[in-house]
């Protein structure tokens, strides 16, 4: 299993990770070797096996529809890199 630089670039865009030119090759190599390793799973016939998406045999875990006090705004914003008018400030969208 090899993975191309183009695939690495595409995945990096999806993951919002800016890669330097010299890193792409490294990622391609490392990801390639892990993917080659996990390819081992294809030795197994899993026809008809239900995917195990929840390990616990637990269903319908609910809370009641009750309002509790919200966080203090100063507290919730205290860790923010940039704040204005009680809101998180981010650079332009486009």
């Amino acid at each position: 299993m090899t993975i191309s630089i183009k695939e690495v670039e595409h995945v990096a865009v999806l993951a919002r990770l800016q890669l330097k030119e010299n890193e792409k090759e490294k990622y391609a190599r490392h990801m390639g070797s892990v993917l080659q390793y996990v390819d081992k799973l294809n030795q197994l016939d899993t026809e008809g096996v239900e995917p195990l998406d929840h390990i616990l045999p637990v269903f319908n875990v609910f809370r009641e529809d009750q309002v509790k006090p919200a966080s203090n705004r100063e507290e919730i914003l205290a860790n923010a890199p940039l704040v204005e008018a009680g809101q998180y400030k981010v650079p332009k969208i486009i």
Partner: peptide, 29 residues
């Protein structure tokens, strides 16, 4: 458990869960 009311001051109906803070988990209403 934050209030679902409309029109409050910005970021006053929020908590670490609906603000996506580290370690927070959803519990279904």
């Amino acid at each position: 458990s934050c209030s679902n009311e409309f029109g409050a001051e910005p970021n006053t109906n929020v908590c670490p869960i609906c603000s996506g803070f580290p370690g927070m988990l959803p519990v279904l209403n």
